Simulated scan of single mutants.
Amino acid sequence: MLLILTYLLCMALFTNLAILKDPKDMGAIYMGLIVCGLLTATQILIRKFYPQGDKFLITFACILSVIGIAVLYRLDTSIAIKQLAWFTGGIIVFMILVVAIPDVRDFAKYKKVYLISTVLIMPMALIAHQNVNGATNWVTIGGFGFQPSELGKITFVLYLAAALREYEDKNNILEDLKQLWQPALIVMLSLGCLVLQKDLGSALIFFGIAITMLYVATGKKKYVILTLILFIIGSVFAYYLFSHVRERVTIWRHPWDDPHGQGYQIVQGLYAISSGGMFGSGLGQGYPGFVPVNTSDFIFSVICEELGMIFGLGIMVIYFLFFYRGMRAAFRVKDTFSQLNTIGMSAMIACQVLVIIGGVFAVIPLTGITLPLISYGGSSIITMFFALAILQKISEEG
């Protein structure tokens, strides 16, 4: 039933986009059919060859991707076509990994590989020095631009899972420090690189992943409290040391002081959400051109304006179910490495959603990150389907 509803949602969105133009835009219909075909291929793979795994994970991912491609098509057809290509690539990556990975438990022994990969990936953008929208978190190789932090999320989770699975509670702080000092250094290195890159959103995500996995692995609240205290101290230092941090906080606290300047993004996003109301103005009937960065950072504002707050809340519910199904797999599997991987990947998705939606609603300082599977972004799409493949394999283990 959920699959049928997904097909109906997909064709309803793209048919709506097609009839908005005169003559009808058949390209929108074709794109909807292609998306349905990709969805069917993934369902056949999972249901026929891996029936023991969670069948909802890929379905939820496809629902979010369908919404993202449709909204991007409404905003910019060329960007939607690129997103469709990235979605196709993500599906291919998902299929290859699901077929190729024999058992996630077998990869626990490669802790040093994950460690070296994280240490090499995280400072990569600092060396490249490419500035995009004020942040130096992009690298271009052979004309292809990507964010190293997206790949770093995967290696970061894999390393922490491999390192923390060895933790043993000996009721001795010194013994605990011997076990936790190396993961702590990797976390500090990663956060430090992201702050220097002005990528504050990714820094929050990495911190959320680390603190969640630390608590699950140790079961000790005192370490979580200590980590939070250190994070607060580090945030205060970053506020006084880096001008871009002070600027983000000032805009967050007083966006209406300069609505046509520094506060323009937040103000226009809030205007769009409020003008849509509960049920929206209708797909294609809003004014998303007034919303800056509407294909990535503020795509949720566009969705709320044209499809309504109820639709936006529905998207948040799907993200919650996505997180729930991932955590459910962690309870069903017995291997510690697999459990920590599941928790880390699920926390990664949940933190990213909370950070970007919180920024759009001005609950926290705005940070330039993508809304998973909906916003435009190739590296983000590939990362999400990579994480999804790992979650799928672990759900089979359970």
Rank of each mutant, 00 (worst) to 15 (best):
I205Y: 00
G192T: 10
V195R: 02
N172A: 05
M213T: 01
L189H: 14
A184P: 07
K178Q: 12
S190W: 05
Q179V: 06
L194G: 05
G208M: 08
L191D: 05
L194E: 10
Q197T: 11
P183I: 15
F206I: 10
W181I: 15
A163F: 00
I225F: 10
K222T: 07
L204E: 01
N172K: 03
W181T: 12
I225E: 02
G192A: 14
Y223Q: 06
D176K: 01
R165Y: 06
L180M: 07
F207N: 03
V195K: 00
Y167C: 08
E175S: 10
L196F: 15
A163V: 00
L204I: 05
F206P: 00
K170F: 11
L200N: 04
Q182W: 13
L228E: 05
K222R: 13
K170N: 10
L191S: 09
T218V: 11
Q182C: 12
G208I: 09
L177C: 08
G208V: 09
L185S: 13
L200D: 03
M213C: 05
L194T: 12
S202L: 11
C193E: 06
R165H: 09
W181M: 11
L191N: 09
L228A: 13
A210I: 03
G192E: 04
C193S: 12
S202P: 01
K222I: 11
L191M: 12
S202I: 07
G219Q: 02
A163S: 07
T227Q: 05
L164E: 08
L228K: 02
I225Y: 09
L191A: 08
P183A: 15
S190V: 14
L177D: 03
I209R: 00
Q182R: 13
G219M: 02
L164K: 10
M188G: 15
A203D: 04
Y167F: 15
K221N: 08
L200V: 10
K221A: 11
F206S: 02
K170D: 06
K178R: 13
Y215C: 10
M213P: 00
N172P: 05
C193L: 07
L174S: 06
I173K: 08
D199M: 05
S190M: 12
S202M: 13
K198E: 08
E168Y: 14
M213N: 04
V187K: 11
G208D: 09
I186E: 03
L204K: 01
A217E: 04
K220N: 04
L204H: 03
A217I: 00
D199K: 05
A184G: 13
V224E: 03
M188F: 15
C193T: 11
P183L: 15
V224W: 02
Y167H: 13
K221F: 08
L196C: 10
L230W: 04
I211P: 01
G201Y: 02
K198D: 01
L189C: 14
T212I: 04
K220S: 01
L196K: 15
T218I: 07
L228M: 12
E168F: 11
L191F: 09
L228D: 03
Q182M: 14
W181F: 15
F206G: 00
I209S: 00
A184I: 14
I209W: 00
T218S: 09
K178T: 09
I173R: 01
E175P: 02
L177H: 03
K222W: 12
A203F: 02
Y215D: 02
V224L: 11
V224D: 02
I186D: 06
M188W: 13
G201P: 02
E166A: 14
A163C: 04
F231P: 00
